[in-house]
Design a protein around this nucleic acid. Structure first.
Lengths: 144, 144
DNA sequence: TAACAATAGTTGCATATGCAAATATACACT
DNA sequence: AGTGTATATTTGCATATGCAACTATTGTTA
């Protein structure tokens, strides 16, 4: 396809930004000082506690420095803690703290509500189609 | 729709990030020190030279501080210049410089190539559908 | 006209990202 | 064992964004 796919980047970018903004503000309104990026990490750890930073990097599709600094912030806020790994002293395993677990529990309904809101008026078919297309774009941009 | 729309935010975010990365690297490989965000502004100015910063903010869906700083960078690199407005001394009109114009001309084919690449294997119908859905998400997140 | 509100832009602070370079540790191979 | 390579994480630098606060100027209106 040519010439028609004019402003995909623009629509992608502004929508992503707005979605993140909504999540961030909802967290803030609920009394939680957490960014969407931090939420993603907490959410992953909630289903797989004790991942290493490089595991987290892979699962969140971020690079090592980004994860390193997000973990810094989450640790500073006492949502997670780094535990050294016995067999490999280069690594840390990252665990949710009590407070981290509570926070994920508290925010999960809010996140579901926002997800539903973002998808209002759209169908299951739309979802399938959208995922197919966006992941095709992702693949198209992944090759050299 | 419920419960199914699980990871839209994640797919949006990682795809947007990858698209921007591809554009940035392509610019760099072509010898241009320009970010995708800076490109968007140059591209808008190329079709409407002399917009004010608040016009640019509106058209690019960014806030005033973001535009202010992007213009700072573009001006420092001599791609644009701020011209004071006679009737309203609060305002600047932003103009592409010679170099800015040359740069847009040089990068346009590259941008088109990348747009085509991102849309490879997808149809005009996919495009319509995708735009409908992503803009619906945008609207859903725009209301209070 | 004086006071107040609105508009245009800038600046400071916190966060996130990409990249390159650095450190520390583990692994592999001769 | 010793050298070189790979892996895990951190740090520095540049850029972008959201938000709040600030300055300067313009508009409104009592």
């Amino acid at each position: 396809m040519q010439a028609e796919n004019n402003k995909i980047g623009y629509y992608l970018e502004r929508t992503t930004r707005l979605v993140k903004l909504n999540f961030h503000q909802a967290f803030k309104n609920a009394g939680f000082n957490i960014t969407p990026e931090q939420w993603v990490i907490l959410d992953i750890l909630n289903s797989q506690n004790g991942l290493s930073q490089s595991d987290l990097a892979e699962q969140s599709f971020k690079d090592a420095p980004s994860i390193s600094r997000i973990i810094d912030t989450l640790a500073r806020k006492s949502f997670v803690e780094r535990k050294p790994v016995k067999n490999d002293r280069r690594k840390f395993e990252i665990f949710l703290t009590e407070d981290g677990i509570k926070t994920v529990k508290a925010l999960t309904p809010l996140v579901n509500k926002l997800r539903n809101q973002s998808w209002q008026g759209l169908s299951k078919e739309d979802y399938t189609k959208f995922l197919k297309i966006i992941n095709k774009i992702f693949d198209n941009m992944s090759k050299e």
